[in-house]
Structure formats: C-alpha cells, structure tokens
C-alpha cells in the first residue's frame, strides 16, 4: 500500500540519493549519488533491501518526519541521535515504525552524514535511471517543510528475521584520506608532493556535495591543463594554490591539474568530516605495469 512521510522539519540539508546516474555523463550530467556508499549499503542490507535502494541522506542536523503507515527503517552513517517518539534509537538496527510515529534527530555524536533506509526503498521520481536529487535537474533537490515522501507500507512476517550485518564505524572518526596519485601528480615539485602528503589540511565551511575545499593553500605555479575528464574524488589544484576535492555532484570535466584521486574508501571517510576537520592524505600506489 502506498504511504507517505510528512516532512515536519527539513533539517539542514537532506536529499534522496541512490548510487547515482550512470550513462548521462556524456551529456554533462553529474553522477550524483550518496556521499557515503558504505553507510547506504549497510542500512539497505540490514533491512533486506536491494543494496542500491534509494535512501534519505541527511546532513549534520536531521529532519523531523511523520510516518503515515507501518514500515521498518534503518539509520546508518553519522550518529545524529535519532529518536522515535522521543525515545533514543540505535544506529544500524531495524526500527519498526507504526502509523503516526515521529522520527527526530538531536545532537551530533559522530560523523557528518546519516542515512535513512526504508523497507522496499523510497518511491520517488526516477530521472535518467536514478532517484538521486540534483539541483537544476530533478524537480526537488532538498527536503522542504511540508513535503511528502512516498514508500510502500509493508509489515514483515513474524517468521522473517533481518540479516545480521557486520559493520564497522571507526571510519567516522578516521582522519586519514586514502588517495592515489592523480594524472598530474608528477608535475608537482618534490617540495609540493612532500607538503601535500605530510601536512595536515582543514576542510572549509564552503564545502558541499559538489566539492570540498581545503583552507590551506599549496603554493603553486602549475598552469591550467587542457580540459579533461574528472570524477568524484578527483583532487584539483587551482593556479592560486587552492585544493579542491570533487565530490559526488561534481562536473564531468575540469581544467585544473588533477593531483590526487581519492579511493572509494577515501570518499567515504571524507564524506563524514564536518567542516573544519583536520585531515591528511595517505597515498597508495597503483600496481606496477
């Protein structure tokens, strides 16, 4: 049965996301998708959903949501103190929902982005093979007060047990970002390479789903490059020495030297850093060819 969630409060920035759009980058459409793929996967697995079912990605301060009909949800990723009808709820566990239940969030305990999965996934607009919201493309790009989100109300049979899923949450506090050298890494001077990999860096307040900028500069005389493909996790160095780490909503091509490339683990860890966090890059190497 189709049911709705009423958005009583939208939170700072909440959006429906899945693994993103694939097949439309050739038209200049960003990939989008959840910032932290690991957390999304965990909450879907715990619910017994398909791993790529759409989830609600919430940032720092969660929304207040009212459920119209029974279902089950699971919350994974950052601990933003979820409460159901005023009672604290644990992460990474199935939370049974009854008609009229209200989910709220409180203080941030760890991480930056939390994910709400729902039994069967959210039923929202699919555009270009994806439910991921993106400003200027999908009809909605952020949760708004009074908005409705749809799902199929279903109750699990008593005999069914939820799968136990091993998870680890230590990455939420990790400050090491796993990177590979980018295509223009070798154009950096030895001194620049050293500084890049040894210094601690601070994530800037201006950061969003498109890019995370770092506060400190890397002194630079690198010229722009011929416009070339980029992807989530590409680390660009601007002529003024700014370091920009592209995230899920990034453009498909760019003209700044690509000095590093985050691994998927690196993107996952960085996604959970609140603005102002101290991070360092931990370089991995490709196999020898």
């Amino acid at each position: 049965m189709g049911a709705e969630i009423e958005v009583l409060q939208p939170g700072i920035f909440s959006a429906i996301q899945d693994l993103g759009r694939f097949g439309y980058q050739k038209f200049g459409v960003p990939q989008s998708g959840v910032m932290d793929r690991y957390a999304m996967r965990i909450c879907n697995l715990i619910l017994g959903n398909a791993e790529d079912s759409a989830v609600l990605e919430i940032t720092l301060q969660g929304p207040h949501l009212k459920f119209q009909a029974p279902t089950a949800i699971c919350i994974s990723g950052a601990d933003l103190s979820p409460q159901l009808n005023g009672h604290a709820k644990a992460l990474n566990m199935v939370i049974e929902i009854k008609a009229g239940d209200i989910l709220k969030f409180g203080k941030r305990i760890s991480g930056f982005r939390s994910y709400i999965g729902i039994l069967g996934g959210f039923r929202t607009e699919t555009l270009m093979n994806s439910q991921s919201w993106y400003e200027g493309l999908t009809s909605e790009f952020r949760l708004k007060k009074g908005m409705k989100l749809y799902y199929d109300s279903q109750s699990r049979k008593a005999s069914e047990t939820y799968s136990t899923v091993k998870q680890e949450t230590t990455y939420l506090a990790d400050t090491n970002i796993e990177v590979y050298p980018g295509p223009e890494f070798d154009q950096l001077t030895l001194k620049q390479k050293e500084q890049l990999l040894e210094q601690q860096w601070t994530t800037d307040e201006s950061s969003n789903r498109m890019a995370i900028q770092l506060k400190e500069d890397l002194k630079n005389e690198q010229k722009p490059i011929i416009t070339a493909p980029v992807m989530p996790g590409t680390v660009q160095l601007t002529p003024s020495g700014k370091i920009i780490i592209l995230m899920r909503d990034c453009q498909t091509t760019g003209g700044y030297p690509r000095i590093l490339q985050l691994s998927e683990k690196g993107i996952q860890v960085l996604s959970q850093k609140i603005p102002g966090s101290r991070i360092s890059f931990k370089k991995k190497d490709y196999p020898d060819f």
């Binding site: 050739k26 038209f27 200049g28 459409v29 493309l137 453009q251 091509t253």
Partner: peptide, 8 residues
C-alpha cells in the same frame, strides 16, 4: 565533448 553544465 559535452561538459561543464548539462548540455554545454
């Protein structure tokens, strides 16, 4: 190629 913005 097409890049920068969708359709550019």
């Amino acid at each position: 190629f097409i890049g920068f913005l969708p359709g550019f």
